[in-house]
């Protein structure tokens, strides 16, 4: 199981802030692909991925128990 976190426009598109996904092995890119398929109405082109609260590249391995967050372009300040 991995834990997915959604924010801002993606949270609205998904209709939820978090969900669990059954998971054995793969990379951040695989999860991104899963999310694109699951939420096709959301434009993921500028989304960054964080695993366990750190930005990662798409080839980062993701293991069961990890928290994966989709980070749309930020706009704090």
């Amino acid at each position: 199981m991995i834990y997915l976190h959604y924010f801002a426009g993606l949270k609205e598109a998904a209709g939820k802030a978090e969900e669990e996904l059954s998971w054995e092995v793969g990379t951040a890119a695989d999860i991104l692909q899963w999310a694109k398929t699951s939420y096709p109405e959301f434009d993921f082109s500028a989304v960054q991925i964080a695993v366990n609260e750190e930005y990662v590249l798409e080839d980062e391995p993701v293991q069961p128990g990890d928290h994966v967050a989709f980070i749309p372009p930020v706009s704090g300040g």
Binding site: F7, A8, G9, S45, Y55, A69, V74, S75, G76
Partner: peptide, 23 residues
């Protein structure tokens, strides 16, 4: 640039997440 915080502007006639205009 890097801190995961998002701002939504709420107008009289709509609203939008800023930095997320593609959606």
């Amino acid at each position: 640039k890097v801190v995961p915080i998002w701002k939504k502007e709420i107008w009289e006639d709509g609203e939008e997440w800023i930095g997320d205009q593609a959606y």
